[in-house]
């Protein structure tokens, strides 16, 4: 225990383990800059470190509540509950893993879908809950995503999805692989109908989710510093037997390689996406987006 922790009054001491971001404590430490942060303030700042700008992971529901206009969100597909079709069991039963994930996160599945408004304009937005079995895509995640698309098709709405997932859910085996085909086919209909889909890739977006719905946005946005790719870094290292280059599979790397359109910092997400959607739909600029600064030189790139 450090001297600081010793003299710190016990009621504001963070819970036990010195691991990163213990949610129940009042204080948390930024993994990047080491700053000790006051949790309520961090939450107000949408889990972005006010000292260094690191984008920490944010819960799917909190994400949507912050993204949509206050009080406009109604959740879709809540009646859809995960099932254990294969009676899958590894070292533990899939059923038990599911109920544990439900208890831990307060969610029924790893995807939350809402119909709501963004700067006064209706849309459907969905967000993965990474803490729910790594945001993995099983049959109900696929089905909920498709419900969102169907609402868009029925009401001519745009779709926004915040991905945060390790990929397909192994416990649903081939059924989960098929969700890649299912969600992609649904997005093909959005495209046919000329309804915009903006896909936001957050930390992490890997495997089967990356190789399906997440990469199919008309506009693909990444959050700063997110890990994005198909194969995991460890698998690649084992295959090619060399160390991976610095920043490999990070948002900035993807932007450089032409895989994403832009990187948007979380606090600007609402206005920038609203602005994009308004242009794609031939609508007037949303009020709150008018005040956005015109894009200058990219702050992430050294002036050349």
């Amino acid at each position: 225990m450090s001297w600081f922790e010793k003299i710190m009054p016990s009621r504001i001491r963070t819970e036990g383990k010195s691991k990163r971001g213990v949610p129940e404590g009042l204080w948390t430490k930024c993994d990047t800059c080491g700053a000790v942060l006051y949790r309520p303030e961090l939450e107000r700042n949408l889990e972005v470190c006010p000292k260094c700008g690191r984008h920490m992971r944010i819960a799917g529901r909190a994400r949507l509540e912050a993204f949509l206009d206050a009080g406009t969100g109604t959740e879709l597909g809540t009646e859809l509950e995960p099932r254990d079709i294969l009676k899958f069991r590894d070292s533990r039963k899939y059923k038990d893993r599911l109920s544990e994930a439900q208890k831990q996160t307060g969610e029924r599945e790893a995807l939350v879908v809402m119909r709501g408004e963004l700067l006064g304009r209706p849309l459907v937005a969905s967000a993965f809950e990474f803490r729910f079995m790594g945001g993995s895509m099983g049959s109900i995640v696929g089905e909920r995503f498709v419900r969102g698309v169907e609402t868009c098709l029925a009401e001519s709405l745009p779709l926004v999805c915040f991905a945060a997932s390790g990929g397909a859910r192994m416990q649903e085996a081939l059924i989960s692989l098929m969700q890649m085909a299912k969600t992609s086919a649904a997005l093909a209909r959005m495209r046919e109908r000329g309804l915009p889909f903006i896909s936001v890739l957050t930390d992490p977006t890997m495997g089967g989710v990356s190789a399906s719905l997440a990469m199919l946005g008309d506009v693909v946005v990444a959050e700063p510093g997110a890990l994005i790719g198909f194969a995991g870094p460890r698998v690649i290292e084992q295959t090619v037997r060399e160390t991976l280059p610095e920043g490999f599979q990070r948002s900035e790397f993807l932007l450089e390689h032409g895989a994403v359109d832009m990187i948007i910092a979380r606090p600007e997400m609402r206005e920038r996406i609203a602005r994009l959607l308004a242009m794609l739909r031939h609508a007037k600029p949303p009020k709150a987006a008018e005040s956005l600064p015109e894009p200058g030189p990219d702050p992430d790139v050294d002036a050349a």
Partner: peptide, 26 residues
Amino acid sequence: GAYPGIGAEERGQSEAIAHNLREMAG
């Protein structure tokens, strides 16, 4: 499976697969 290599990732392995899934549906 799809090849897990550095070049494959740099050239958009995920996008290539996703693109096929969407187009094959139609």
